[in-house]
Structure formats: C-alpha cells, structure tokens
Lab assay of single mutants.
Amino acid sequence: MASQGTKRSYEQMETDGERQNATEIRASVGKMIDGIGRFYIQMCTELKLSDYEGRLIQNSLTIERMVLSAFDERRNKYLEEHPSAGKDPKKTGGPIYKRVDRKWMRELVLYDKEEIRRIWRQANNGDDATAGLTHMMIWHSNLNDTTYQRTRALVRTGMDPRMCSLMQGSTLPRRSGAAGAAVKGVGTMVMELIRMIKRGINDRNFWRGENGRKTRSAYERMCNILKGKFQTAAQRAMMDQVRESRNPGNAEIEDLIFLARSALILRGSVAHKSCLPACVYGPAVASGYDFEKEGYSLVGIDPFKLLQNSQVYSLIRPNENPAHKSQLVWMACNSAAFEDLRVLSFIRGTKVSPRGKLSTRGVQIASNENMDAMESSTLELRSRYWAIRTRSGGNTNQQRASAGQISVQPAFSVQRNLPFDKPTIMAAFTGNTEGRTSDMRAEIIRMMEGAKPEEMSFQGRGVFELSDERAANPIVPSFDMSNEGSYFFGDNAEEYDN
C-alpha cells in the first residue's frame, strides 16, 4: 500500500510504541512475548500442572481467558453494579484439565481477579502490559475465525453469508486497541457500523446529549479505520460520505453494504499476525530463551520457528480426527482463516481442507461434555516452508469459486491468482447506482469489472525454506488448481455463540 510509510507498523501498534527502528520493534515485541511466557509459567505453578498438562491447549485457553477477564475493567465495573446470582464479580476462573488415573478430569478453578492481575503485572515488570493482553485477544479471535462461520451475524446486519472472507476479527472485544483495529476485516468494521446506525434509528437519543457526542466521535473513528483499509480513492470518498452524514440511517447502511461487497474484489488491507497460545510461549521462556534479547516478529519467520520446536497437546472428542484438529489450530496460529487453501497447503506441506470436510468441533470443551471418553493427542503445528504475512489485500483475480465463501483475504505475501467468483459478486451490483453516491458507485463498479483474471497478485513473492531466515531465496510455489480455494466452501461450520 502506498501510504505504508505514514502508518505505524503493526509491531508498533502491538507494543504501543512511538516510531521505533526494526531492532527496537523486535525487542519490544519480544518483551511482550516474554511477559506472556513468564505469566503462563507462574500460572502453571499456581495450578500445580504437570509439564504435559501445561502444554494442553484447553488449559492455555482457560488461563488466557482468566487474565483477560481480570483486566476487563468495563465488564468488571458492570458486574459490580449489576450483581447477578451466583456470579462473584471479583473472581474469575474456568475449567482446568488434569490427568488422573490414566483419565482426563475437569476441575473448575476460581481465583481472585486481583490475584491474577498481581501475577500478570509481576510477570511483566510491574506494568499492565496491555500489548500482551491484546495479543491474547487476537489469538482467540484468530481461533474463532478458523472455527466458526459468522453466517447468522452477517444475515442479521443485512449482509450476504458468502462475504465471510471479510469477517476477520469479528469476535475481537471493543477494547483491543490499535492492534485489534489493524486485524479487523472490512466486513467486521461494516458490521460494527451498521449495528451502531441501527441503534440510532431505533433509539432517538442515541446521537443526542453528552453521551451522543461520545457516540458520534466513536462512529467517526470507526469510519476512519474502515476508510484506511480501502485502497481505492472511490471507496475512500464513499467512506467520507458515510462519516460526514448528519443523521446516519438506511442510506448509510446501503452504502456500507455496497462497500463491503466491493471489497470482495477491490480488497481492503487487513493486517495478519501470528499470535500463538500462551502454552507455546511459556515452555520456550522456561527453556531459557530470551525473546527480548533475541527479538521477535509476528509477521516473519519467528512464529514458524517457534511452532517448529513446540509440543502442544489437545483434548480430542471420541469421533474427532486429531489431524483435522491440528489443521484448525495451525490455521489459527498463522492467522489464515480466509487465505486461499492452495497457498496454505503449499506452505504447510500437507493438504489443507475446507472447514466442512474437517471432523472436528471447536477447541474448547463445553462444561456439560462427558470427560470419560476424552483422549488427548499432539497437535501437528509444523510447516514445510515459511512466508511473510501481508497486510495488503493483493490485486484481484477471477477463479472458480464456491457456493460458500466467494473470495479470499490473503494472509501471506505469496504470488498467486486470487480466487473470487466474479459473476456471483457482480450480480449483486445491478441497477442500484442512484442517489448521492452514484458517481462513486459507478466508478467502483467500473474498477471491479476491469479486474483481470490473468493478473498475478504479489508478483514474484515466494515462500522460503525454514533454514532461509533472511528470506534470501524465494520459492514461487505451484498450486494444484483442481483443489478448492475457499475454506468455508459450501460450508456447515458451527455458528459462533458468545
């Protein structure tokens, strides 16, 4: 993207840094990872977990959730003011799984939030270390993106479920800051804005008074975040219109849905970061690795190297396929839920299948599930090659597409044709070009129609051997075009429920 120079890199967003050079960025990201790792080690000690239990991804998720809940100030305040039966607002906890007599047992633990905050700050040299908290939120978000298709949420806001490739980060909490905003897809931002506008339509006082002023500035800020994701002048001009509207209503909703559809071809720039579970960072720190000293990046080879040398386990339900569970977590670790499966298959070195073909449910185990038949197995999170994460949407291309997802959002900077089903997408653009945004709409449609099938995206960008740390010898991959490109292809993934 041309304006790259004016933006802070995501590592800076990730670490609240002012302008830093590459070495400083690597050190501050490393410091953040160190903090998460030290916190995780301490929690495993508190909970008396064995090494194996500490490497269980379900335990990692519970521990991450506990610290996120302990620092969720708004919710904590709300819980104190609106006490609900049987919930102690000062405590947080969740299921911890232990191996007892050759069987997995679930144990519900409860801790004072104050105590968890103390352990977290102690692991982070006394700081609140917001960057580390956001990092864990993005890992949870990436896992949700890989596990669930947001059909219901899309339909509720009037969008087409086939636009799911635009929904990265749709389950990120509001408090995820600049680093969170960077990884949100165009569809996620559109959905947040539509929800806001709908509230304004239904509630006369939404934009009024002292609160209304705050609401208005939040609305304009979200519009600017979305505008910054678009790469064409016409899309940005249309966002200006939406932002400046005196009284946002149905016309703005129409414009936003139009823009979301246009992003299936004229893709937005959305950041991709490899955020790993805390149970990967903990053992690495415990083994003596100093992330701050060595430096770390979320968008280069580092996460690949770390996963190459990590042992992570997962509980497996009786009829689940461990290899499929591994694929789910591998995609989440690489922030690749909406990437082209052919690119992923090449990088991973084994075939990556669409969601609907995987015999696996989510990673988390519900409290009512029976533990008797639970097994555990090693997650295979290694890769054959590594590639640089991208934040450009890439230019655009036609490809055989599917009944489910009709476009992709690249996660890796790797040369390819970008699949999208042009006739299906263009069919949504018939007729409606009147109104105050008509010239911009016409211009956007013209650009979409001009998108050429034979153009290559990320020209000359390749993948790298894991021994090639400096990215000196790019390998331009070859793809098996007979395979499906979309992950949520004609899909039956479970729906995400809060």
Rank of each mutant, 00 (worst) to 15 (best):
A323H: 13
R152E: 09
T92C: 05
L306C: 08
G94K: 12
R213G: 05
T378N: 03
L344F: 09
S69Y: 04
E455K: 06
A260S: 14
A181L: 12
S359Q: 15
M32F: 09
I197L: 02
A233V: 04
I301S: 09
R118P: 08
A129N: 08
A336C: 12
Y148E: 02
N125D: 08
Q58W: 06
V285F: 01
E14T: 11
M426F: 02
I253E: 11
R75V: 05
Q399E: 03
N334M: 09
R436G: 04
T437V: 01
G394H: 09
M239C: 13
L466A: 08
S467R: 12
T151V: 07
T171A: 01
N202W: 09
R446G: 10
M222Y: 14
T92N: 15
K351Y: 09
M196H: 05
R156S: 12
T92R: 04
E252Y: 08
H140K: 03
G5K: 00
A131I: 02
I475F: 01
D112L: 13
L47K: 09
K351A: 09
L133T: 03
Q20I: 01
T146W: 02
T92Y: 01
A428I: 11
E495V: 15
D88F: 06
G362H: 08
A366I: 06
A22D: 10
L79I: 14
Q168N: 08
Q308D: 03
W330A: 06
A286L: 11
N205Y: 09
P322Q: 11
R74K: 14
R19C: 10
K77A: 13
I444N: 00
T134E: 08
P173E: 09
L307S: 05
L143C: 14
A472K: 05
D302H: 14
L466C: 05
E46P: 15
R236M: 07
Y10V: 14
A336D: 13
K229D: 04
R382V: 06
G288H: 08
Q231K: 15
S457E: 03
K184H: 12
H82A: 04
N21M: 15
E455D: 12
R65Y: 02
R243L: 03
E465H: 00
R213I: 08
A286S: 11
T188K: 09
Q409H: 14
P318V: 12
N211L: 15
P303D: 06
A129G: 15
R208S: 05
E294N: 15
S9E: 01
K98S: 13
Y40I: 06
M136I: 15
N370P: 13
V408H: 12
P89V: 15
G212R: 03
G404W: 01
N247S: 15
R470F: 00
F488I: 09
V343Q: 04
E294R: 12
A218P: 04
G177V: 12
Y281T: 09
R118D: 06
V343E: 04
M239D: 08
S367R: 08
V67Y: 11
Q398H: 15
N247L: 01
N205W: 09
L193S: 15
G362V: 01
K87D: 02
M13A: 06
T360Y: 07
T215I: 03
A337Q: 10
Q4A: 06
T23V: 06
C333E: 04
G435D: 11
N202S: 07
T147G: 04
D128T: 13
E53Q: 12
P303Y: 02
N397E: 00
H140C: 09
K91A: 05
I316R: 02
V29N: 01
A237Y: 00
N205F: 00
E434K: 12
T433V: 13
L358Q: 04
S274T: 15
T232I: 12
M196S: 13
T350E: 00
L172W: 00
F489Y: 15
L154N: 03
F338P: 07
M196A: 12
D340N: 14
E495I: 05
F304S: 02
L307H: 05
D145G: 12
Q459A: 00
V67L: 05
R416I: 04
T146H: 04
E339I: 02
F258P: 04
A401Q: 02
V408C: 15
K103I: 08
G93R: 05
E320A: 10
D240K: 06
H82M: 14
F429T: 00
D340Q: 03
R204I: 02
G5P: 13
Q168D: 04
I116M: 00
M196T: 12
Q122A: 02
S486T: 14
R236S: 06
F489T: 14
D290K: 07
F458Q: 05
V280T: 12
M426Q: 12
F206Q: 13
R216I: 05
P248S: 13
N334P: 06
F488H: 05
S407R: 11
D372C: 10
N432I: 06
E454P: 04
E107Q: 03
V155G: 12
L307K: 06
S217F: 06
H82C: 14
A85H: 08
G185M: 05
E14H: 01
D128S: 10
A442W: 00
P354I: 09
Q327W: 05
S176I: 10
I445S: 09
E434H: 11
R342L: 05
T188M: 03
V109L: 13
Y219P: 02
N432D: 00
C164M: 12
E375Q: 00
P318G: 13
M43G: 05
G86V: 00
A442P: 00
A323K: 00
S262P: 01
A387V: 12
G282E: 07
E46Y: 02
G431M: 13
R150G: 07
S353F: 09
G490L: 11
G249I: 08
Y148G: 03
A471L: 01
V329S: 06
V100S: 12
W139R: 07
T378Q: 06
T147N: 11
E294K: 12
G362F: 06
I365A: 09
R19Q: 06
G393W: 08
V29R: 10
M136R: 00
M222R: 00
S407A: 05
S467K: 14
S377V: 12
T378M: 11
K90N: 14
L143F: 04
K452E: 04
T350S: 11
S383L: 00
Q122S: 07
E252W: 11
I201T: 10
R342Y: 02
Q399K: 15
I257P: 01
R38P: 12
S297G: 09
S60F: 02
M222V: 01
W330D: 15
R246Q: 14
I265M: 15
K87F: 01
I406W: 06
E80W: 10
L358A: 05
R174F: 02
K87E: 12
L56H: 13
V67D: 09
Q398N: 03
T396V: 03
Q398T: 00
K103T: 11
S377E: 11
Q399Y: 03
E210L: 14
G300R: 05
P318M: 13
M456S: 09
R267W: 01
W104M: 03
G295N: 07
E115V: 02
H272L: 05
D88C: 15
E244A: 09
F412M: 12
A123C: 14
G300I: 08
M374W: 07
R26Q: 08
L193M: 15
S165D: 04
S402I: 01
L307Y: 01
Y289E: 01
E192Q: 04
G17E: 03
D497A: 13
K7P: 00
A251L: 14
V100P: 14
M43I: 11
A427I: 07
L61I: 12
A411C: 15
T396K: 09
I444C: 15
K273Q: 07
D160Y: 07
D72S: 05
N211I: 05
T433P: 11
N76S: 04
Q168K: 08
Y289N: 08
A332P: 09
E210R: 09
A451D: 11
M448N: 06
M167H: 08
M1C: 10
S457D: 15
G30C: 12
I347Y: 05
F338Q: 15
G249P: 08
Q231N: 05
G185E: 14
S245R: 03
Y78L: 00
A271W: 05
T157P: 01
S274D: 03
E53A: 15
E494L: 08
G300A: 09
S69G: 14
S165H: 02
A179T: 02
N144W: 09
P423A: 10
